[in-house]
């Protein structure tokens, strides 16, 4: 018994050690970015690297939020990413469910097509899609980005949800169908709650995809009020001259917050209890 407790404690210690090691490596550049964001310009580069600024300052944050269009970029990115996420989750749920539950002609073809279309380098898609958006009159709208990102998120989301649905026993839905539920009701009321971890993953994925995208955001949006974060940050880097790295790093730091925050709230749906409860209930 005592030995058992000791192994358990040792294991916990090992887990913490592992988690701390991973976090240290994964957060290393990020901490450097935060450190830079708190430095005045003349401290950004020093001969001996300095983690703690000698004269820490919040000027970079103040300038970023008051003297640049950063708040606009941020708002636009939130708008685009949230709507993209909703769209991708809804559309992929239906598509993934279809691939998982039905045996129909062309099923395998569709599954493979969805994967294959994203194997082409994105740079070749820019001009045809730009032309398309121009013809649809969608240039310089957020809608153009939402349509594009929502679609880019579909291959992963559809496959991911198909994979999740595959692991959920069909018995539950079948009894619900016999009880008079429609398919859509069965999907919404029985399957989706059980696939919560998958939905969370897909939502997070779509959000981050939209949040991070640069190439198409640069092409499709044109005026300052429509620009998104990645484009805004890239434009701040300019070509040469007095680039305010502190402000850019501050901007990148703030840009990390929404996704981390969203995931903090969403991750309880990753927990087993949620699905277990539903299975039993």
């Amino acid at each position: 018994m005592i030995g058992n407790r000791r192994t358990k404690r040792l294991k916990t210690a090992g887990v913490y050690l592992g988690l701390i090691a991973f976090s240290a490596v994964l957060l290393f550049p990020f901490l450097w970015m935060i450190s830079t964001s708190l430095k005045p310009d003349h401290e950004v580069f020093t001969q001996v690297p300095r983690w703690i600024p000698q004269e820490p300052t919040l000027d970079n944050y103040r300038n970023l939020l008051t003297r640049t269009s950063y708040p606009t970029y941020f708002r636009n990115s939130i708008l685009v990413s949230v709507i993209t996420t909703l769209a991708a989750v809804v559309i992929a749920s239906f598509a993934g469910y279809s691939l998982s539950r039905f045996r129909f002609r062309g099923r395998r073809g569709v599954g493979i097509l969805i994967l294959v279309v994203q194997m082409f380098p994105a740079v070749l898609l820019v001009i045809p899609l730009f032309t398309l958006m121009q013809q649809l009159g969608l240039l310089n709208t957020h809608l153009s980005l939402i349509i594009a990102y929502g679609t880019f998120a579909l291959p992963f989301s559809t496959w991911m949800l198909k994979g999740y649905f595959d692991t959920i026993p069909t018995a539950l839905e079948e009894s619900a169908l016999i009880d008079g539920c429609t398919r859509t009701q069965a999907l919404r009321q029985i399957v989706l709650p059980l696939a919560a971890p998958g939905l969370v993953t897909v939502a997070l994925f779509s959000f981050v995809l939209a949040w991070q995208e640069y190439l198409f955001a640069l092409a499709f949006t044109r005026t300052e009020p429509m620009r998104t974060l990645t484009v805004g940050l890239a434009l701040m880097q300019g070509q040469h001259g007095r680039i305010s790295w502190g402000e850019i790093m501050a901007g990148a730091f703030i840009a990390c917050i929404p996704a981390v925050l969203i995931f903090t709230f969403l991750q309880r749906y990753l927990v087993q209890g949620f699905t277990q409860g539903a299975v039993k209930g």
Binding site: V82, I83, L86, A87, V90, N140, H142, L143, I146, P225
Partner: peptide, 15 residues
């Protein structure tokens, strides 16, 4: 319903 929410959101984002 989710579609309506989406459409409303899209409408807002038009300049």
């Amino acid at each position: 319903r989710p579609w309506l929410v989406l459409l409303a959101g899209l409408g807002l984002s038009l300049p």
